[in-house]
Design a protein around this nucleic acid. Sequence first.
DNA 1: CTGAAAGCGCTAACAT
DNA 2: ATGTTAGCGCTTTCAG
Lengths: 334, 334
Amino acid sequence: MARLAGVSPATVSFVLNRTPGQTISDETRQRVLRAVAELDYRPNRAAQGLRHGRSATIGFVSHDSDFGVFAAAAIKGAHEVSIRHGNLLLLVNTGGSTRQAAQLVGELLDRQADALIFAVAGTKSVVVPEEAARVPTVLLNCFVPDDAFPSILPDEVRGGREATQALLGLGHRDIAYLTGTTSAWATKARLRGFREALRGAGLDPRNHTVLSGNYHADSGHELTRKLLRHRGPLPTAIMCGNDRMAVGALLALLEAGVRVPEDVSVMGYDDQFELAGEVRPTLSTVRLPYDAMGRLAAEELDAGGPAVQTGRTLVHCPVVLRDSTAAPAPRAGA
Amino acid sequence: MARLAGVSPATVSFVLNRTPGQTISDETRQRVLRAVAELDYRPNRAAQGLRHGRSATIGFVSHDSDFGVFAAAAIKGAHEVSIRHGNLLLLVNTGGSTRQAAQLVGELLDRQADALIFAVAGTKSVVVPEEAARVPTVLLNCFVPDDAFPSILPDEVRGGREATQALLGLGHRDIAYLTGTTSAWATKARLRGFREALRGAGLDPRNHTVLSGNYHADSGHELTRKLLRHRGPLPTAIMCGNDRMAVGALLALLEAGVRVPEDVSVMGYDDQFELAGEVRPTLSTVRLPYDAMGRLAAEELDAGGPAVQTGRTLVHCPVVLRDSTAAPAPRAGA
DNA sequence: CTGAAAGCGCTAACAT
DNA sequence: ATGTTAGCGCTTTCAG
């Protein structure tokens, strides 16, 4: 014990914490510091936590069957700002089961987590274990029907709109949309943005092909083949539900000898790490700012307010233009 | 306090923990349990930890600039078995900096983490903060020069060898290898496995093209184009440093009108989540069992032995055959 | 069979 | 200006 080394029990605490309103003689301070250095003593934060009722720990609940790209990015963001505030992340994965979620939130609370981040990969409505309400909790990429917890969500409508506008800006007038899973919240929102943008440019969405897929690369491949088979003139641009579908589309187009972006532009969505920026041609896409969302969540929590600020915060998804999009080739009919 | 509800202070502890060698009358037990249920009381694990000197928490140090696919998989595995043993993961990311690593290991230790997992995405030698030695520590996908900590590593030589043997088994005799970053441990090991397999089949590795890339999709693309430009007869199979390079290769081949697997077989490495199984054709590859490695690490730690069992544990990387490989087409010269 | 008491490592209020 | 005391919530001898 540092106390043996010096000659004081709680004085150490005063010195180490610079307790305000406490004045310590320079001599003792030195003595303490020397002892601390010698034993390289570090306060036991579990004990501090017990005293303070605060563990300097934030529970991160990944409510998915797997940790994936989403969780990794969100965790990175949350970690980054938590660290800055002296907090660490206590991580659990529920496997997507509501029962497991309740169980694990219990474990987190037992360990006195000061706050909770509840995150899901595919934006959607979730059931949050009610015990979560005992501490400040933020929902990341998900929400509850009554908005009892504050949510942080990507602004998918705007993302879809701006992606479409980017294409329109390049001169495209015939844009096909290969959607992700139709039932998904994000799919609907992106599609809505797509239609808004078309209407905004004076075009009729009903003249534009929309095909339903499932967010997997092979569905992008398949739908693009359908596009190639069935239509007369190919659209000059293809928007895809996400980057993986875009990669599938790319493969199908190349197989058919269609050049990207000379003959057709392709737009993804997600800006998926190690994918969008690396395929050839590199993919124009919309950045899903999971890391920023994680940061935001942690900021709300670290700020620590009783934090039952409610409501939904939408985070902007910026368009990232790379090589898979270009102005359409002048058409014969033009 | 549950104690108020019943009429006992520490008896609660006996009941809840079924303390061996303690015998409790059925009546009191019921009383306690009823009170516990009513207040849905749960013991404070921070306090338990303080008492026991054990936090039921394992520190997971991701020593990379980012959380990525690797960390996500390894964490998933480690989480899975930790949970089963009643432990939770306390997660930190060092950004790859040794100084940050020391700092964060400090934070973990201050919070009384019972053990540490130190993980890196690209297999390599690392500098582990020396304080890590205060608790059982396992190195995941990395090692220290003197093997002072036990390491868990993928068996890359065998992976490379078996991937090559799979191709040889299909009848391929001319296999090109597009490597990842040459300086990487994994690259060398996989290449060694490649050569061992060739020699094992009575072939001379020097007759096989080996081109150096960097594990990114675009380098797979570029090297494949080089292959297409420079060589007379294309090899019948191309092994790639990883799946992303394989996707690059796929794109380049399709662009050139070369069919996969009819004209050329392509083999990846990693079995990357959401990639290898989804591109068209689906990628034959070697599974890098990061989740299993994570599980293994947690198992060694949860077993909790003083656990300074040292040495390196190699984990098998099984070949996964999908659609991008097939028997070579009969050649004119054959 | 159960309660009282001490103590894990720390800090906040209260004496000195 | 420093040291004492009590207590955070739990477990564990040790007496009853």
